[in-house]
Computed example of a mutant assay.
Amino acid sequence: MKIIKFLFLLFFIASCSKKENHNYTFYYWKTNLKLDKEETKVLEQASTPYLYTRFFDVDKVGGKFQPVAVITKDKSFQTDKEIVPTVFITNPAMLNISAEEIQFLAKSIDHLIQKKAEEYHLKTGNEIQIDCDWTAGTRDDYFKFLKELKKVSGKEITCTLRLHQVKNKKQTGIPPVEKVYLMCYSTSSPLEKSDKNSILDVNILKSYLSKLEDYPIRNIEVALPIYSWGIITNHLEKHKLINALSKKDLENPNFKKISEYEAEIQKDGFYFGSYLNKGFRIKVEEISQNQLEDVIHFLEKKIPNFTIIYYQLDSKFVLNRKF
């Protein structure tokens, strides 16, 4: 009897410690649709048959809606994945928008998505994803827009969900969709002086999502960051970003290491495509596998089974990653 109890205890412990396997895929966020060999290989290995592809942004310029950075396509962009059109809308574009403008915007976005899908022979399905950092001041009109886009397109409309929109759900409201994509990154601004990692600070994320299990929409997928950048600080404490830097880029005889992820430039010159002066500082922000696993383990306690969408598909970010 004792042996049976012991074996049961071992089985129980093993069951509790077993790592969940999550289906995964990627966001594709470049204006020119183009895949190199590494990106093609990684995408083929992704366990979910979708690729979330940004088609264009929408902003309001001079009082008129404008599509920005509309996609083009290179012949190298070949995939069997179903393309999920994703559109980013700036929050200011939703300010003081009229009912007529909501209808116009929904029809225009649906039309341009269809046009680009047909022009580039992209295999799209029944979903359109909208990405907008809506606020308490724009929520009502944004939600009306989501409903109108659903009516116009006849498709399932999904949207992204930022951390503050979970924490402050009473102010920002609950979007009228059946599925949301939780963006587990951008925990602070990279342009503010801080010792925290602005892409992902796990403690900040856990604080914002402490009540995630109470969020009314239960169909939640998870977007995780695999991108990196360098934050350049000049003599006036002004900042700019250089994409895709990693700590190995700090190994330069013209740099003086300040810490594992920071260095000070010792000689004027061109670095990473920009002219940087002596005395400028570089802080690299990248995400470790341990950080991602910490977030995944935390979320597993909060929400049902979820798919992971890594941001973003780029050979600079997918090399040497475990998916």
Rank of each mutant, 00 (worst) to 15 (best):
Q78P: 00
I174S: 07
N23R: 14
L146E: 09
F6D: 12
I258A: 00
G137T: 04
D195F: 09
L236S: 12
M94G: 07
A69E: 14
E44I: 06
Y311S: 00
K256F: 02
M183K: 07
K179P: 02
K123C: 02
G273H: 08
L35R: 11
D57V: 08
K19F: 02
S246T: 15
K238Y: 04
K81N: 07
N197W: 02
Y120T: 06
I226A: 01
Q129H: 09
P175Q: 06
F272M: 03
K257N: 04
E293G: 01
L105S: 06
H22R: 08
D59I: 12
K240Q: 13
L163C: 05
S198Q: 04
F145S: 05
K30H: 15
F272P: 06
D214R: 11
L182K: 09
V284W: 04
N252L: 02
T187Y: 08
G125V: 01
H239S: 06
F145D: 06
K115V: 01
A46R: 11
E293C: 00
A99L: 08
H239D: 05
L43K: 07
L241M: 11
D214V: 00
A136Q: 13
A69C: 03
T40Y: 10
L205C: 07
L319F: 00
L200D: 01
K147F: 03
E262P: 00
K301C: 03
D268T: 04
F272E: 10
N168W: 13
V295F: 07
N32H: 14
E127H: 01
N91K: 12
S76T: 15
R54G: 04
G137S: 09
E285D: 14
K5Y: 14
I231R: 15
I287W: 03
I217W: 04
V152N: 07
T158F: 02
K18M: 10
P225H: 05
T160V: 08
V284G: 08
L112Q: 11
I4R: 01
E237R: 05
Y208I: 01
H22P: 05
E101Y: 05
S198T: 12
H297N: 13
E300S: 08
Y208F: 15
S210Y: 02
L95T: 09
N168S: 13
R218T: 12
L299T: 08
H239L: 00
F306R: 04
K169T: 14
M1G: 13
P190D: 11
Y52G: 03
Q312Y: 07
S228T: 09
Y208G: 00
F104S: 06
E192M: 09
V87K: 04
V152D: 10
Y275W: 13
N23D: 15
F323C: 01
T40D: 14
I287L: 07
K302F: 04
K316V: 00
N305A: 11
K257E: 06
D201Q: 09
N197L: 10
